[in-house]
Design a protein around this nucleic acid. Structure first.
Lengths: 232, 232, 232, 232
DNA sequence: AATGAATGAGAATTCATTCAT
DNA sequence: AATGAATGAATTCTCATTCAT
């Protein structure tokens, strides 16, 4: 028995009903439960960081018990990685589709990509927070850094370099741009930093997004286009 | 929280004597103890993040006992803020001096500043880690964001804008640059992101620093200089 | 409880399919399922002890799901008792047959029995482990102690005492041996302890089995035979 | 973290006062706390086995909080080993003193040792339970087996062999006894098994201790002494 | 007969913090 | 000023068991 001295963690009675969005409590197919848990975990991680997040809180947000979380994910670290993974996928699909579909001068494509990046920064606070988390936890989770490398940088940079190369080949961009190895990260950085600044300082105090976007596009096109080409 | 893989127990009986490598044990004036504790705390926070850091570990690194930490700082949060505060002073003095002393075309000054920024990225890991910490903890410690705003951004951006404005006035830069409000953060971002990437991925996998620097300088100068002006 | 060093999660989503090496999955008659589960449970209990064993692991070893275990056994305790019960039958039949069949001096019969006991120690690790389990769990499961009494001790001791009495009656053993009430357990103990030591320490570090057997036989015969009787 | 905001309900009256035997609650010197905790742990482990024991219950028995247990011992496993260690020491000291001090024929010394062993079995249930635990947990804690080897067997066997050798040298025992390598464990086994049987079956059903002792002494002396020597 | 989603009650352990010495 | 014993609450994770399917 051993009941007398029990100290009862008893996390937040009744919170299940109130906390999670859903009316859940009943058996659900994994295909429904998994995203529900992932969403709850994203919220919790985003708000409190990795170490600060608690599995109990994730469970409460999802409206299930801690045990169930462990039924679906081996542990906190795996849950975290699953969350990250589930968030990063759709961004790239979108960007890749954008590039594939685009018709017109490469300069316009590049402008479009930059504007797409700034647009994402403006929307989707969630995602940016996740990016912060990856930064913050990268050296405690070497796999996370590897993951960021594999799923973000190593997908994004070639995308940009592809556009640069295409522009050079089309005779739009100055040939010195070459394969864009050094330039691609320079082009990506401002929108990324804009995201971080927004996240840290809020819209009020962070550098103005629209102004950065304009200056960025302007600088890039002037810097890349052959002398005499029109800015679009 | 300290994950499962931790195998050292830092706080068991008798370990105190052995713990700190340092020679301390004697009564010390606050003026000496304080920096000692701050240094230890910087190490610990840098390695493990805010939530991951433990007061016991800070004490052990400092070669004192937990109790003493509380003698000097009201709590963990205050200790953290004190650490950050004590660390971000000297960088700007250097940049400001560089600008003040510089003689020659503004384009060269700008190039010098950019190169200075990349140089700092290459050195001083400690600093970058602190920057990471500020990012990671900013929304749990609003004062931290305010501090970053006041002591970093609000000092760095005007510096850059000053140079841009001077270049426009000197007739070196295109007049459309204006007051540089949008452009300054765009110029700062790549070196900053380079720092973050280096920190996350290490020298091996992060985008190459030298290549970024060259591409960055090249892009900026081509994008800013009046048509026909020499690149230097 | 399962300690910290455990690294496999045995129960996460989707693992069920992969878990059991066995081919089962189909509906089976109870007569086939029961021994399958008992075998799996024996392995698990033997390896991890009662408290350390997990129903999930038993299920996995048996290639079925936890639910099914509960279909066949009311709970963990019952499963454990069923395992023990199913395992201790055949040893005694053999010893009893040996005695019944034997012809020759009782001293030789006793020597034969002792050697039989040591021989069993050398073989059959499984059995010894079960004996260990009975010892370990006896006072949490009083029926288990009763079972050991009834099925092991109360069968073995009379066997030995029968031989002793027969030897006294035959004039081989000193009459002081009497009914062997005190002596029988003394005679049984060394082989039993040899088993325990082997189990705990392995063949390398445990007292040497052959040396014990020789010394044991020698001591017993010298101690029991009438003065002047040959040792055989 | 998630710690600062807690306001501590601070009720929890009584549990400490009521639970442990002691009146403790105040600061105590480690020299006093340690044995208190060890005693509590011995009780708990003895009653519930290693896996079945709970740190919370140990703490409650000791009248302290779980945290304090971890202040004194790195973890459950270490606590267990400390308990074992603290129980095994005094037995041997006693036996060693007994041998060192003894004067008279070696046969009498051996009889004395055997009787000492049975006497310990009769007293001190605690100790026997601990021995059971060592057996039960030995193969989950290889160090425990090693410990048993080092601290028990490797001390006890030489003790016995020393007496045997001395008896041979004194011309009391038959020279065939030799160095007692095989014989020593055979001599130790019955008292040890008597302990195990007592523990498992209780005084009522286990083989009678006094009868075993008499038969054991008798068998050993008759088996060892030179023909014609008096039994004492 | 069989599955596996879901629960709930602990388990070990960690840690910021307090306070007697 | 400094120690370190002691607390108490939270944290991650485990597991026997139930039950809808």
């Amino acid at each position: 028995m051993r009941n007398a001295q029990v100290e009862t963690t008893r996390d937040s009675v009744g919170s299940a009903e109130a906390a999670g969005a859903g009316p859940t409590r009943r058996r659900l197919a994994p295909a429904e439960r998994t995203p529900q848990i992932l969403a709850a975990a994203l919220e919790e991680f985003a708000e409190r960081g990795y170490a600060g997040a608690s599995m109990a809180a994730v469970a409460a947000r999802a409206g299930v018990t801690k045990g169930l979380i462990y039924h679906y994910f081996p542990g906190k670290a795996d849950l975290f990685k699953a969350v990250v993974r589930s968030c990063v996928q759709p961004v790239f699909s979108e960007a890749e589709r954008f590039i594939a579909v685009f018709e017109g001068p490469k300069a316009e494509l590049l402008r479009g990509l930059i504007e797409f990046a700034y647009a994402r920064v403006a929307a989707e606070r969630r995602e940016r927070v996740l990016f912060k988390l990856i930064i913050a936890e990268a050296d405690r989770f070497p796999e996370l850094a590897a993951f960021y490398d594999a799923e973000v940088l190593s997908r994004a940079l070639p995308l940009v370099r592809g556009v640069l190369r295409a522009g050079v080949e089309a005779g739009e961009f100055r040939p010195e741009v070459g394969d864009g190895a050094g330039l691609a990260p320079v082009l990506m950085a401002p929108a990324t930093m804009a995201s971080i600044w927004q996240m840290m300082l809020g819209e009020g105090r962070a550098p103005d997004l629209a102004a950065m976007r304009e200056a960025h596009v302007d600088l890039v096109l002037r810097g890349l286009l052959r002398p005499g080409a029109p800015l679009g």
